[in-house]
């Protein structure tokens, strides 16, 4: 009995001390590059409650956008606009609705010239559709969009991003619920050291704004089990600029350096000097 309690005590102590420690890369500088298999490699399960910002459509056509579309095909148009990157890249989209379905045809002003033409139609895929007394329509569309970033030296650079738009229409009573979400499925991958062992990590734009350095909203994933996938929860943590390391000679506060679209990320002593340009 006495022995069992002692074992329990030791495990309790180990748990209490260990519970407070989160995995953190070994201090160093790590190159990153866009991941190969898109969003499928980052696994958000249903329990993760992950959802980027919900946005509404508006019936009001933005004054700086012109439509060159077969208007006779549609009963109405609804407009949406989203920003990506850090240099004012904005994309306008329009949903053409027939009477029967809200989401009929999607057009995105891909060349951002302020004119939406029939050639800019983007295919939507149906994820879920129910019409039993109530209607639920969930679709998504994928597009590779060019996004501009302002570097720390003021230079404008462009990167392609794979974007997934998720559209939702729910009609449970007279009032329909209509909204959309923007997901940036391009994640940045690198190989780092965790507790001295090499492992893959991924930087994920959690809030879908095309920027990779939103503390508290973006994520750093570690492929701890080496299955080639990044699992939300067990293998993820919110992006955090400061880390309290309690590891041997690295004991102290460390700063994670992540530019808006990084070529490298770094974990360095919090008070050390650095140039952001070295990480872009």
């Amino acid at each position: 009995m006495k022995r069992r309690w002692l074992i329990f005590l030791v495990f309790g102590l180990l748990f209490a001390i260990g519970a407070g420690n989160r995995p953190v890369l070994t201090p160093g500088i790590y190159p990153v590059q866009p991941g190969g298999n898109g969003w499928d490699q980052v696994v958000f399960d249903k329990k993760s409650n992950y959802r980027p910002g919900i946005k509404y459509f508006t019936a009001i056509q933005p004054s700086d956008v012109r439509l060159e579309l077969p208007k006779e095909r549609f009963a109405s148009f609804s407009f949406g606009r989203f920003s990506l990157g850090s240099a004012g890249t904005e994309y306008t989209m329009v949903i053409g609705s027939q009477n029967r379905y809200f989401f009929d045809t999607l057009y995105i002003d891909l060349d951002r010239d302020g004119v939406i033409t029939a050639r800019e139609e983007v295919k939507m895929n149906e994820r879920q559709s129910v019409a039993l007394g109530y209607t639920v329509q969930e679709l998504d569309a994928e597009a590779r969009l060019t996004v501009a970033y302002r570097t720390s030296t003021g230079k404008i650079v462009e990167h392609p991003l794979d974007i997934r738009l998720i559209f939702y229409y729910g009609k449970f009573s007279d009032e329909p619920m209509v909204f959309y979400m923007v997901q940036n499925t391009t994640f940045l991958q690198g190989t780092g050291l965790l507790n001295g062992k090499p492992l893959s990590f991924a930087l994920v734009d959690g809030d879908g704004n095309g920027r990779y350095n939103d503390w508290g909203d973006d994520f750093l994933f570690y492929d701890k089990n080496g299955d080639g996938k990044y699992h939300f929860g067990k293998e993820s943590q919110v992006l955090n600029p400061l880390h309290d390391l309690k590891i041997g000679q690295n004991n102290g506060i460390y700063r994670l350096i992540v530019p808006v679209f990084p070529a490298k990320i770094g974990l360095i002593a919090a008070d050390a000097d650095y140039k952001m340009a070295d990480f872009e």
Binding site: M1, K2, W5, A16
Partner: peptide
């Protein structure tokens, strides 16, 4: 002794 450890465990956990 076992009784003492019984109280000691939650106390140590809370402390930690």
């Amino acid at each position: 002794m076992a009784k003492k450890i019984k109280y000691l465990v939650p106390a140590v956990l809370l402390f930690c």
